[in-house]
């Protein structure tokens, strides 16, 4: 039982960070019906940049955070301007290939600049553990979880109540109609990419705080894709739910299934399998909007 609770709580805590990262993917999709398969690489870059700022340049933590943010914003703007602006009405396969190409470039650049060796991440949040009876939870997991969740909450408020958020939702539904009302679609795309880029960088920092800085962070791209699809690609709440679900499921799979000799390594493919099963039952994910199509 303790085992189970331990795995459950750890899963929820990690899942919170997954959710937060997945939300960035949702934002881009909502704004322009585009998506970014280089998202995991952007998460990784955020982690590496913040690590460099803190560990290599010895900057104070808030300054390092600022540097990372500035970098993330620039990256978002550059990618949007150079690649995605002209691709907004491109077919889905073109978008997939384009962002996969970008993923290759970014991953290669990380290799070139930082090399393949993993690094320990400086402690930005207090270390230690919180003990609940026999259950031990690392403090940094808990803090990361709450930061992540607070961020998601802020973001959904942004979409619900601010003018910019509302106009992003409108533009995602009908670009031409949005333009006819004076919404600059260009501005919307920029805004969404910048938002997503910031979310990715922040997620990278939180993840690095948990698992250190390494090339494996790009694996988050795959995880994000599973989470987003599981939750429904255009639903922030869905991403939140699916992220936590995925965190729990992965931890459980690692904790229980991997004990069986013949199932070694199932933790890696478990998110995908879970997503596949859910998709068969709910083709638009847990909370995705059904697209109403008219011919």
């Amino acid at each position: 039982m303790t085992d189970f609770l331990q795995l459950l709580l750890m899963g929820i805590l990690v899942g919170g960070v997954y959710s937060q990262i997945a939300v960035g993917f949702v934002v881009i999709f909502k704004a322009g019906k585009t998506f970014n398969l280089a998202y995991g690489e952007m998460v990784m870059l955020g982690a590496y940049i913040s690590w460099t700022a803190m560990d290599q340049w010895d900057l104070a933590k808030p300054v390092a955070l600022l540097v990372t943010l500035v970098f993330a914003i620039t990256l978002g703007l550059v990618v949007e301007r150079l690649l995605l602006r002209r691709m907004t009405s491109a077919p889905i396969h073109t978008m997939i290939m384009l962002t996969l190409g970008l993923a290759g470039v970014l991953r290669g650049l990380v290799l070139v600049v930082w090399g393949p060796d993993p690094h320990a991440y400086p402690d930005i949040v207090p270390t230690g553990t919180v003990n609940l009876g026999d259950i031990m939870l690392p403090t940094n997991f808990i803090v990361s979880f709450f930061i992540a969740i607070a961020f998601v909450a802020l973001l959904s408020l942004f979409f619900q109540y601010t003018k910019a958020g509302l106009s992003m939702r409108a533009a995602s539904e009908d670009k031409v109609a949005a333009q006819s009302l004076g919404i600059s679609v260009k501005r919307i795309y920029q805004l969404s990419w910048v938002t997503a880029s910031i979310i990715a960088a922040l997620g990278g920092i939180l993840l690095a705080g948990i698992s250190g800085v390494n090339l494996g962070l790009a694996f988050m791209g795959l995880m994000t894709l599973s989470v987003v699809i599981l939750g429904g690609i255009d639903s922030i709440l869905g991403a939140l739910l699916a992220g936590i679900l995925m965190g729990v499921a992965t931890k459980m799979a690692e904790g229980y299934l991997e004990r069986i000799e013949s199932l070694k390594g199932i933790g890696e493919i478990f998110p995908m399998m879970l997503t596949l099963v859910v998709l068969l039952i709910r083709p638009h994910g847990l909370l995705g909007q059904k697209t109403v199509e008219r011919v």
């Binding site: 509302l166 939702r169 409108a170 539904e173 009302l181 919404i183 109403v292």
Partner: peptide, 12 residues
């Protein structure tokens, strides 16, 4: 904007 409420549509 079919997924927005009527009032949000007007506000846009």
């Amino acid at each position: 904007f079919q997924h927005l409420t009527v009032e949000d549509n007007l506000k846009i």
